[in-house]
Simulated scan of single mutants.
Amino acid sequence: MEDSIAGLSLDDEEDETLQLEVEELNQEISYENCLVGVFLTSSVVHFQAMRSTLASVWHPIRGVSILDLGRERYLFRFYHEVDAERVMKSGPWNFNSHLLILHRLKPREDPLVVQLN
């Protein structure tokens, strides 16, 4: 066991790999095929129930990730453009009788700042 540990070393190639990972973190986040949404309600929306219900109802071709952004906003990331378009065109949507307002994000748009009407 000591022989296998003694053979471990850091060389230039491993340092470059670590540097690439840092650069990837600094890249701009892509919001392609993403929607940002808010529910018109003063009550709390149960995130897990909403996430599973909408994913089940929308039944996207390649899936959807739903993230809680805080400030009562949610990010819906679709993995196929057709899914995002279908959800936008087939609305309005609701959960627990609360209307969901959706906005399709454009490049470089901040989902926490965008106006939802």
Rank of each mutant, 00 (worst) to 15 (best):
Q27D: 07
H98L: 07
I66P: 05
S56K: 13
P107K: 01
T41I: 04
P92S: 04
E14D: 11
W93H: 10
A84D: 04
E13H: 11
E72V: 09
P60H: 04
L40M: 09
S43V: 12
L75E: 00
E81R: 09
I29P: 00
L10K: 08
V114F: 04
E14A: 11
V64N: 03
V36L: 04
R51C: 12
E24M: 14
H46A: 12
I66K: 01
E21K: 14
H103Q: 06
N33L: 06
V114L: 06
I5P: 03
E24D: 15
D15S: 15
I29S: 06
S65N: 15
L99Q: 11
L25D: 08
T41H: 02
S30V: 02
R62E: 09
T53V: 07
V87A: 00
L40T: 10
S52P: 03
E13C: 04
L102R: 00
D12Y: 10
L18A: 12
G63T: 07
L18E: 10
S52R: 14
D110G: 05
R51G: 04
Y31N: 06
V44M: 14
W58T: 04
L25F: 09
R104E: 08
P60N: 06
K89D: 07
G91K: 00
G70M: 03
R104V: 05
E13Q: 12
V45D: 04
L99G: 01
S4F: 10
F95L: 04
G70F: 01
F39M: 02
S4Y: 12
L75T: 03
R108E: 15
L112R: 07
D12T: 10
Q27I: 10
L8N: 03
P92R: 05
S43A: 13
V44F: 15
H98E: 07
S97P: 00
S9K: 15
S97F: 13
V22A: 15
K89N: 06
A55M: 14
K106W: 03
H46R: 13
N96W: 08
V57S: 06
L116Y: 02
V57C: 06
S42E: 13
R77T: 07
P92Y: 03
F76H: 02
E21Q: 14
L69K: 03
L18C: 07
I101R: 15
V64Y: 03
R62K: 15
N94C: 13
S97E: 12
L40N: 12
F76L: 15
L116D: 00
F39G: 01
R62F: 09
I66G: 02
G91M: 03
S90G: 07
D11M: 08
R77V: 06
L10V: 13
D15I: 12
S43L: 09
D11C: 09
L18Q: 08
D12V: 14
N96P: 05
E81C: 08
S97L: 12
